[in-house]
């Protein structure tokens, strides 16, 4: 069983620069067809300050650090035994190339189903931009498959 005492554990703030090239790469990898996600000239013509970050781009912020799976290591979870169970985004404001984001995260909940065969961990993050405006919140929940360990 995962250590429930880690519920609420918070992690140091991560500062993330939203770079144009990174957005272009992300748009390519996710096969975006709308140029507002990769063409700055087009984005500006359409009233945006720069290239717009797509809805799921914030996932990159958590990975862009030395130890992206630190919370899993803290829980003693082997990365090969986890699956992404669910993902939630609440959006308050748009994110553009040139923004600098600050992400604050904590372990939200730890719970189990099927008599402990499946354990769930949620990781809750808040994102603010350089104007200190809260732009988004996310909840990422992973599931640990315990059956193979028994």
């Amino acid at each position: 069983m995962l250590d429930r005492s880690l519920i609420g554990k918070s992690y140091p703030e991560i500062i993330f620069s939203v770079e144009k090239q990174r957005l272009k790469l992300f748009a390519k990898a996710t096969q975006q067809s709308n140029p507002i996600y990769f063409d700055e000239v087009f984005a500006k013509k359409n009233g945006y300050p720069s290239i717009l970050a797509p809805l799921t781009f914030l996932t990159t912020v958590g990975y862009d650090q030395g130890k992206p799976y630190q919370y899993l290591q803290d829980l003693g979870v082997p990365i090969g035994n986890i699956l992404h169970a669910s993902q939630e985004y609440t959006n308050y404001d748009s994110i553009y190339a040139g923004d600098e984001l600050r992400m604050e995260s904590r372990i939200g909940e730890i719970y189990d189903k099927k008599e402990g065969m499946l354990e769930f961990v949620s990781f809750v993050s808040k994102y603010k931009n350089q104007k200190r405006i809260l732009v988004a919140e996310s909840v990422s929940t992973i599931v640990l498959r315990n059956n193979e360990n028994k």
Binding site: A29, L55, T56, Q87, N91
Partner: peptide, 26 residues
Amino acid sequence: GMLVMSFLAQAITNIFPQESIKKFDS
């Protein structure tokens, strides 16, 4: 999973402006 969710995001933003999308869960 997030790649699949990114495709789904595009199905919505093909129709609705992204700034109108207040919540998005998978």
